[in-house]
């Protein structure tokens, strides 16, 4: 039987991770299903597990003037009801899984699982999230977009643990989230869309964000396209509609799988983008 570790401090966890090739387990709501065997038998893992979720020092939500700091073992139910959680992230969490799962699963788990269909990543991409990756010897901060390199692939090193997620405060007065799934809860997205914008008093677009999941190997956010509309008046923006749609149409590469197919995903993605643009 493989030996598993239940550390009592983050320091101890980092030491174990430094010395041994262990698999990290946060809430376990994905890993326990991916590795399950027969009913009544333990799940089968080929590495020892390092259980992180009992580390109270990684469960916090703090803020200063510029940034919201989320400890990596914060569960989604806590984030859903916390006053400082950005509204778009709350909208997303409310349609993820079910209350019983949200109480256990963590934001860091959803990130490191790196599913192309992960819903929480929509908000993290749109809000320019940064991750604090800690090892016994050093700490580095990386952007969410550089962290995830492909389906289930990240740049995390074998001795690192995600300690914190940082979200810079950014005002948005237009928030449009739409998830398309088989049902309203316990559903993995066929695709999901998050559109954010801040329109100022002079009817100019200060900031503009569109993020899509499940239409490419990683989530889609087009920084250059966003820049072409930032600063435009709403009137001028309307003339950019076709160019915008074309940019996203070129960038997305949806696939057929058990949840949906490429034709539906492409059409639904473009419809959601059009709806957001037309109601801005």
């Amino acid at each position: 039987m493989v030996k598993h570790y239940l550390p009592s401090s983050f320091q101890e966890a980092l030491e174990i991770k430094h010395q041994e090739d262990v698999m990290l387990i946060a809430g376990g709501t994905d890993l326990m299903v991916q590795h399950r065997t027969w009913s009544e038998l333990p799940p089968q893992f080929d590495k020892p597990l390092l259980f992180l979720f009992n580390l109270a020092e990684l469960k916090y939500i703090k803020k200063d003037a510029n940034t919201l700091y989320i400890g990596s073992m914060t569960d989604l139910e806590t984030l859903l009801y916390h006053n400082d959680t950005p509204p778009c992230l709350k909208d997303i969490i409310a349609l993820m899984a079910s209350p019983a799962i949200r109480y256990v699963c963590t934001l860091a788990g959803n990130i490191v699982n790196a599913s192309p269909a992960a819903d929480s990543l929509l908000a993290l991409y749109a809000l320019d999230a940064k991750l604090v990756l800690t090892s016994l010897k050093e700490e580095r901060i990386v952007s969410i977009e550089s962290f995830i390199t492909g389906p289930r692939q990240t740049i995390i090193k074998s001795n690192e643990i995600i300690k914190e997620i940082q979200l810079p405060h950014q005002p948005f007065n237009r928030v449009h989230f739409k998830k398309i799934g088989g049902r309203k809860s316990d559903a993995i997205s066929k695709l999901a869309f998050l559109g954010l914008a801040n329109v100022n008093q002079d009817h100019q677009i200060d900031t503009f964000r569109i993020v899509l999941n499940a239409v490419a190997p990683t989530l889609i956010r087009l920084h250059e396209t966003e820049r072409t509309v930032e600063g435009l008046s709403l009137e001028a923006f309307k003339h950019q509609k076709d160019a915008l749609l074309e940019a996203y149409n070129t960038a997305i590469k949806p696939i057929d799988d058990q949840r949906s197919n490429r034709t539906y995903r492409r059409q639904a993605a473009l419809n959601l983008i059009r709806q957001f643009i037309e109601t801005l």
Binding site: H4, L6, I25, G27, G28, T29, M32, V33, P43, L49, F51, F53, N54, E77, P99, A100, I101, Y103, V104
Partner: peptide, 22 residues
Amino acid sequence: CAVLLDGHSVNSCLLPLAYVHN
């Protein structure tokens, strides 16, 4: 399989035993 963990419902089929420590 739901049970109460510190007063909140959780799915016990997804929880590794380690999770309920303390």
